[in-house]
Protein backbone atom coordinates (compact mmCIF):
# COMPACT_ATOMS: atom_id res chain seq x y z
CA UNK A 1 0.00 0.00 0.00
CA UNK A 2 2.89 2.35 0.79
CA UNK A 3 6.21 1.96 -0.98
CA UNK A 4 9.21 3.91 0.17
CA UNK A 5 11.95 3.79 -2.43
CA UNK A 6 15.51 4.97 -2.01
CA UNK A 7 14.45 7.84 0.23
CA UNK A 8 17.14 10.23 1.45
CA UNK A 9 16.65 13.17 3.71
CA UNK A 10 19.34 15.51 4.90
CA UNK A 11 19.01 18.39 7.32
CA UNK A 12 22.19 20.29 6.68
CA UNK A 13 24.97 17.84 7.62
CA UNK A 14 22.64 15.43 9.33
CA UNK A 15 21.66 12.45 7.20
CA UNK A 16 18.26 11.78 8.74
CA UNK A 17 17.20 9.14 6.23
CA UNK A 18 19.76 7.19 4.26
CA UNK A 19 18.53 5.25 1.23
CA UNK A 20 15.51 3.85 2.99
CA UNK A 21 13.54 1.20 1.12
CA UNK A 22 10.40 -0.10 2.76
CA UNK A 23 7.19 -1.76 1.62
CA UNK A 24 4.22 -1.35 3.91
CA UNK A 25 1.25 -3.56 3.08
CA UNK A 26 -2.37 -3.42 4.05
CA UNK A 27 -3.46 -5.62 6.94
CA UNK A 28 -0.10 -5.49 8.63
CA UNK A 29 0.90 -3.52 11.67
CA UNK A 30 4.42 -2.14 11.71
CA UNK A 31 6.51 -1.35 14.71
CA UNK A 32 9.01 1.35 13.78
CA UNK A 33 11.88 1.11 16.21
CA UNK A 34 15.16 2.80 16.72
CA UNK A 35 17.00 4.99 19.20
CA UNK A 36 16.18 8.68 19.68
CA UNK A 37 17.05 10.71 16.59
CA UNK A 38 17.35 7.66 14.37
CA UNK A 39 14.86 9.02 11.82
CA UNK A 40 11.58 7.34 12.80
CA UNK A 41 9.57 10.55 13.01
CA UNK A 42 11.21 11.89 9.85
CA UNK A 43 10.17 8.72 8.02
CA UNK A 44 6.58 9.06 9.24
CA UNK A 45 6.46 12.70 8.33
CA UNK A 46 7.83 11.87 4.89
CA UNK A 47 4.95 9.48 4.33
CA UNK A 48 2.57 12.22 5.40
CA UNK A 49 4.21 14.76 3.13
CA UNK A 50 5.12 16.98 6.07
CA UNK A 51 8.76 16.39 5.28
CA UNK A 52 9.85 16.47 1.68
CA UNK A 53 12.59 13.89 0.91
CA UNK A 54 15.84 15.17 -0.55
CA UNK A 55 15.71 12.31 -3.05
CA UNK A 56 13.81 9.10 -3.60
CA UNK A 57 10.11 8.44 -3.99
CA UNK A 58 7.19 7.45 -1.88
CA UNK A 59 4.14 5.80 -3.43
CA UNK A 60 0.73 5.49 -1.86
CA UNK A 61 -1.54 2.98 -3.58
CA UNK A 62 0.88 3.04 -6.48
CA UNK A 63 0.72 6.81 -6.86
CA UNK A 64 3.60 9.17 -6.21
CA UNK A 65 2.78 11.32 -3.21
CA UNK A 66 5.01 14.23 -4.13
CA UNK A 67 2.81 17.25 -4.87
CA UNK A 68 -0.29 15.21 -4.17
CA UNK A 69 -2.42 15.65 -1.10
CA UNK A 70 -5.64 13.75 -1.66
CA UNK A 71 -4.10 10.48 -0.42
CA UNK A 72 -3.97 11.96 3.09
CA UNK A 73 -7.71 11.34 3.09
CA UNK A 74 -6.78 7.77 3.85
CA UNK A 75 -4.39 8.50 6.72
CA UNK A 76 -5.06 9.17 10.34
CA UNK A 77 -2.02 10.68 12.06
CA UNK A 78 -1.27 10.98 15.73
CA UNK A 79 1.82 13.15 16.23
CA UNK A 80 4.39 12.64 18.94
CA UNK A 81 3.74 16.09 20.34
CA UNK A 82 0.35 17.36 19.29
CA UNK A 83 0.54 21.04 18.47
CA UNK A 84 -2.78 22.79 18.06
CA UNK A 85 -4.04 26.37 17.76
CA UNK A 86 -3.83 27.33 21.40
CA UNK A 87 -6.85 29.59 21.43
CA UNK A 88 -9.29 26.94 20.27
CA UNK A 89 -11.36 24.77 22.52
CA UNK A 90 -11.33 21.00 22.09
CA UNK A 91 -14.84 21.19 20.64
CA UNK A 92 -13.90 23.86 18.13
CA UNK A 93 -10.80 21.95 17.13
CA UNK A 94 -12.67 18.73 16.48
CA UNK A 95 -15.43 20.58 14.66
CA UNK A 96 -12.88 22.35 12.51
CA UNK A 97 -11.11 19.15 11.47
CA UNK A 98 -14.46 17.50 10.74
CA UNK A 99 -15.47 20.54 8.74
CA UNK A 100 -12.28 20.46 6.74
CA UNK A 101 -12.31 16.73 6.00
CA UNK A 102 -16.03 16.72 5.23
CA UNK A 103 -16.56 13.02 5.85
CA UNK A 104 -19.92 11.48 6.65
CA UNK A 105 -18.95 8.33 8.53
CA UNK A 106 -17.12 9.16 11.70
CA UNK A 107 -15.63 7.00 14.37
CA UNK A 108 -16.15 8.83 17.65
CA UNK A 109 -15.42 5.83 19.85
CA UNK A 110 -12.30 7.34 21.40
CA UNK A 111 -13.99 10.70 22.05
CA UNK A 112 -16.54 8.74 24.08
CA UNK A 113 -14.01 6.47 25.71
CA UNK A 114 -11.79 9.35 26.82
CA UNK A 115 -14.87 11.33 27.88
CA UNK A 116 -13.66 14.30 25.84
CA UNK A 117 -17.24 15.58 25.58
CA UNK A 118 -16.96 16.81 29.13
CA UNK A 119 -14.02 19.03 28.24
CA UNK A 120 -15.25 20.36 24.90
CA UNK A 121 -15.09 24.00 25.94
CA UNK A 122 -11.60 23.80 27.43
CA UNK A 123 -8.99 25.74 25.49
CA UNK A 124 -6.00 23.87 24.11
CA UNK A 125 -3.44 25.91 26.05
CA UNK A 126 -5.10 24.86 29.31
CA UNK A 127 -4.73 21.14 28.64
CA UNK A 128 -2.34 18.74 30.32
CA UNK A 129 0.02 16.70 28.17
CA UNK A 130 -2.10 13.60 28.66
CA UNK A 131 -5.36 15.25 27.62
CA UNK A 132 -3.60 16.65 24.62
CA UNK A 133 -2.54 13.09 23.68
CA UNK A 134 -6.13 11.97 24.04
CA UNK A 135 -7.24 14.70 21.65
CA UNK A 136 -4.52 13.67 19.19
CA UNK A 137 -5.59 10.04 19.40
CA UNK A 138 -9.28 10.87 19.01
CA UNK A 139 -8.51 12.95 15.91
CA UNK A 140 -6.33 10.23 14.39
CA UNK A 141 -9.05 7.60 14.62
CA UNK A 142 -11.96 9.94 13.88
CA UNK A 143 -12.18 9.39 10.14
CA UNK A 144 -11.94 5.62 10.05
CA UNK A 145 -8.99 5.76 7.68
CA UNK A 146 -7.38 2.63 6.18
CA UNK A 147 -3.93 3.82 7.30
CA UNK A 148 -3.03 4.91 10.82
CA UNK A 149 0.30 6.48 11.68
CA UNK A 150 0.83 6.68 15.42
CA UNK A 151 3.96 8.37 16.78
CA UNK A 152 4.47 7.34 20.42
CA UNK A 153 0.74 6.89 20.99
CA UNK A 154 0.85 5.85 24.62
CA UNK A 155 3.41 8.37 25.88
CA UNK A 156 2.05 10.53 28.67
CA UNK A 157 -1.27 8.73 29.00
CA UNK A 158 -2.61 7.42 32.30
CA UNK A 159 -2.75 3.57 32.60
CA UNK A 160 -6.49 3.39 32.04
CA UNK A 161 -6.30 5.47 28.90
CA UNK A 162 -3.31 3.47 27.67
CA UNK A 163 -5.43 0.33 27.88
CA UNK A 164 -8.35 2.03 26.12
CA UNK A 165 -6.09 3.19 23.32
CA UNK A 166 -4.38 -0.18 22.97
CA UNK A 167 -7.75 -1.87 22.70
CA UNK A 168 -8.73 0.57 20.01
CA UNK A 169 -5.52 -0.10 18.11
CA UNK A 170 -6.10 -3.84 18.42
CA UNK A 171 -9.62 -3.39 17.03
CA UNK A 172 -8.35 -1.46 14.07
CA UNK A 173 -5.61 -4.00 13.48
CA UNK A 174 -8.22 -6.74 13.40
CA UNK A 175 -10.20 -4.73 10.84
CA UNK A 176 -7.24 -5.15 8.51
CA UNK A 177 -5.88 -1.62 8.62
CA UNK A 178 -2.32 -0.67 7.93
CA UNK A 179 -0.74 0.58 11.13
CA UNK A 180 2.61 2.25 11.62
CA UNK A 181 3.52 2.68 15.27
CA UNK A 182 6.58 3.93 17.06
CA UNK A 183 7.01 3.47 20.74
CA UNK A 184 9.71 3.21 23.34
CA UNK A 185 7.62 0.73 25.26
CA UNK A 186 8.43 -2.42 23.34
CA UNK A 187 6.05 -4.61 25.33
CA UNK A 188 3.20 -2.53 23.95
CA UNK A 189 4.41 -3.08 20.42
CA UNK A 190 4.58 -6.82 21.05
CA UNK A 191 0.81 -6.88 21.36
CA UNK A 192 0.00 -4.30 18.74
CA UNK A 193 2.23 -5.09 15.80
CA UNK A 194 2.92 -7.89 13.38
CA UNK A 195 6.08 -6.59 11.74
CA UNK A 196 9.15 -4.72 12.83
CA UNK A 197 11.32 -2.15 11.05
CA UNK A 198 14.49 -1.09 12.78
CA UNK A 199 16.09 2.20 11.92
CA UNK A 200 19.48 3.32 13.11
CA UNK A 201 21.22 6.55 12.08
CA UNK A 202 18.86 6.98 9.18
CA UNK A 203 19.41 3.49 7.80
CA UNK A 204 16.88 0.73 7.77
CA UNK A 205 18.71 -2.18 9.41
CA UNK A 206 16.03 -4.75 9.78
CA UNK A 207 12.62 -5.36 8.30
CA UNK A 208 10.72 -8.58 8.90
CA UNK A 209 7.82 -10.07 10.81
CA UNK A 210 8.04 -10.23 14.57
CA UNK A 211 7.63 -14.00 14.35
CA UNK A 212 10.70 -14.23 12.13
CA UNK A 213 12.70 -11.94 14.40
CA UNK A 214 11.84 -14.01 17.46
CA UNK A 215 12.76 -17.17 15.61
CA UNK A 216 16.08 -15.74 14.43
CA UNK A 217 17.08 -14.57 17.87
CA UNK A 218 15.47 -17.36 19.83
CA UNK A 219 13.85 -14.87 22.19
CA UNK A 220 10.23 -14.90 23.30
CA UNK A 221 9.78 -11.24 23.96
CA UNK A 222 10.14 -8.51 21.39
CA UNK A 223 12.32 -6.39 23.65
CA UNK A 224 14.86 -9.16 24.16
CA UNK A 225 14.70 -10.17 20.52
CA UNK A 226 15.57 -6.66 19.40
CA UNK A 227 18.36 -6.28 21.93
CA UNK A 228 19.87 -9.55 20.72
CA UNK A 229 19.43 -8.51 17.10
CA UNK A 230 21.30 -5.26 17.78
CA UNK A 231 24.21 -7.00 19.57
CA UNK A 232 24.49 -9.51 16.75
CA UNK A 233 24.60 -6.72 14.22
CA UNK A 234 27.21 -4.79 16.15
CA UNK A 235 29.33 -7.90 16.39
CA UNK A 236 29.10 -8.50 12.66
CA UNK A 237 29.90 -4.85 11.97
CA UNK A 238 32.98 -4.93 14.22
CA UNK A 239 34.25 -8.07 12.51
CA UNK A 240 33.72 -6.52 9.10
CA UNK A 241 35.47 -3.38 10.21
Amino acid sequence: MISIKQVNKTFGKLHALNHVNLELTSGKSYALIGPNGSGKTTLMKSVLGLVVPTSGEIYFDGKLIARDWRYRDKIGYMPQIGRYPENMTIGQLIDMIKNIRQQDTLDEELIDAFKLYKMFDKRMHALSGGTRQKVSAALAFLFNTPVLILDEPTAGLDPVSVELLKEKIQDEKRRGKLLIITSHILSDLDELTTDVAYIYEGKLHYNNSIEALKAETGEKRLGKAIATMITQKQLIDSINA
Partner: peptide
Protein backbone atom coordinates in the same frame (compact mmCIF):
# COMPACT_ATOMS: atom_id res chain seq x y z
CA UNK B 1 0.57 24.62 14.91
CA UNK B 2 -2.43 25.28 12.76
CA UNK B 3 -0.42 24.91 9.58
CA UNK B 4 1.10 21.66 10.84
CA UNK B 5 -2.30 20.34 11.76
CA UNK B 6 -3.71 21.25 8.38
CA UNK B 7 -0.80 19.68 6.53
CA UNK B 8 -1.57 16.30 8.06
CA UNK B 9 -5.07 16.61 6.62
CA UNK B 10 -6.00 16.03 3.00
CA UNK B 11 -5.49 19.67 2.11
CA UNK B 12 -3.30 21.16 -0.57
CA UNK B 13 -0.22 22.97 0.74
Amino acid sequence: EFIELMLAQPVNR
